[in-house]
Amino acid sequence: MAIVADHLGLSWTELARELNFSVDEINQIRVENPNSLISQSFMLLKKWVTRDGKNATTDALTSVLTKINRIDIVTLLE
């Protein structure tokens, strides 16, 4: 997760939308982690794993990252 969080940057909100997080949930992550995109990205991934449990797999994440054109991160995960 740390590799993904380190590289997402501003794309974390796009990833959040693709992972079916609501606008309110995205804003809450922003408010709770106001000074760091990496912290926002990491919190998103943590919430995703908590919410989706065993369905929050590397394959699922890779699929969504591909959908938002972040092949650079997919390559890092391989």
Rank of each mutant, 00 (worst) to 15 (best):
M1R: 08
M1I: 07
A2E: 15
A2G: 15
A2H: 13
A2M: 09
A2Q: 14
I3K: 08
V4M: 00
V4A: 08
D6H: 12
D6M: 07
D6G: 10
H7M: 10
H7S: 07
H7Q: 12
L8E: 00
L8G: 00
L8C: 02
L8Q: 03
G9M: 08
G9T: 00
G9K: 05
G9W: 02
L10P: 12
L10R: 13
L10K: 10
L10H: 15
L10I: 11
S11N: 14
S11V: 02
S11R: 00
W12F: 06
W12N: 03
W12S: 00
T13L: 11
T13G: 06
T13Y: 12
T13C: 05
T13E: 14
E14G: 06
E14A: 11
L15A: 09
L15P: 03
L15Q: 03
L15E: 03
L15T: 01
A16L: 00
A16D: 02
A16F: 04
A16M: 00
A16P: 01
A16C: 00
R17L: 12
R17A: 13
R17T: 13
R17K: 15
R17E: 12
E18S: 04
E18C: 05
E18I: 03
E18A: 09
E18Q: 06
E18F: 06
E18G: 06
L19P: 02
L19D: 00
L19A: 05
L19S: 00
L19G: 00
L19T: 01
L19Q: 03
N20S: 11
F21L: 03
F21T: 01
F21V: 02
F21A: 02
F21P: 03
V23W: 12
V23I: 12
D24G: 08
D24N: 09
D24K: 09
D24P: 07
D24V: 07
E25W: 01
E25Y: 02
E25K: 02
E25S: 03
E25R: 00
E25L: 02
E25N: 04
E25V: 07
N27A: 11
N27L: 06
Q28A: 14
Q28D: 14
Q28I: 06
Q28Y: 07
Q28P: 04
Q28M: 09
I29D: 02
I29F: 03
R30W: 06
R30I: 15
R30G: 06
V31T: 14
V31H: 15
V31Q: 14
E32D: 14
E32Y: 08
E32V: 07
E32Q: 11
E32G: 09
N33W: 09
N33T: 11
N33A: 14
N33D: 06
P34W: 01
P34Q: 12
P34T: 07
P34S: 10
P34H: 08
P34R: 08
N35F: 05
N35G: 12
N35D: 12
S36G: 08
S36R: 06
S36F: 03
S36H: 07
L37Y: 10
L37K: 09
L37R: 05
L37W: 06
I38L: 09
I38E: 15
I38M: 14
I38Y: 09
I38D: 08
S39V: 09
S39M: 12
S39L: 09
S39T: 13
Q40A: 12
Q40K: 07
Q40V: 01
Q40F: 03
Q40T: 03
Q40L: 02
S41W: 00
S41R: 03
S41E: 01
F42N: 15
M43K: 09
M43E: 14
L44T: 05
L44H: 03
L44Q: 03
L44S: 01
L45F: 04
L45T: 06
L45K: 00
L45P: 01
K46V: 07
K46I: 05
K46Y: 04
K46A: 09
K47R: 12
K47M: 13
K47A: 11
W48Q: 02
W48C: 01
W48S: 01
V49F: 10
V49N: 14
V49D: 06
V49G: 09
V49A: 14
T50I: 09
T50W: 12
R51I: 04
R51V: 02
R51H: 02
R51G: 05
R51C: 03
R51W: 05
D52Q: 07
D52K: 07
D52E: 13
D52Y: 03
D52C: 05
D52L: 01
D52V: 05
K54F: 10
K54I: 15
K54P: 11
K54R: 12
K54S: 14
N55I: 08
N55G: 14
N55Q: 14
A56H: 07
A56Y: 07
A56W: 06
T57G: 06
T57Y: 10
T58S: 15
D59V: 10
D59K: 14
D59W: 09
D59E: 11
A60R: 11
A60K: 11
A60Q: 13
A60T: 08
A60E: 15
L61S: 04
L61Q: 03
L61M: 08
T62Y: 10
T62P: 11
T62G: 09
S63K: 13
S63H: 12
V64M: 15
V64C: 14
L65K: 05
L65G: 02
L65A: 00
T66E: 09
T66A: 10
T66V: 14
T66F: 12
T66G: 10
K67W: 04
K67G: 05
K67S: 08
K67C: 06
I68C: 06
N69E: 13
N69I: 04
R70P: 03
R70D: 03
R70T: 01
R70L: 02
R70E: 05
R70S: 03
I71R: 13
I71F: 15
I71A: 11
I71W: 13
I71M: 14
I71Y: 15
D72C: 00
D72P: 06
D72S: 02
D72Q: 03
I73T: 01
I73N: 05
I73P: 02
I73C: 04
V74I: 06
V74G: 04
V74E: 01
T75D: 10
T75S: 13
T75I: 09
T75Y: 11
L76N: 08
L76S: 09
L76K: 15
L76G: 06
L77S: 05
L77C: 10
L77P: 03
L77G: 04
L77A: 02
L77D: 02
L77V: 10
E78I: 08
E78G: 15
E78K: 13
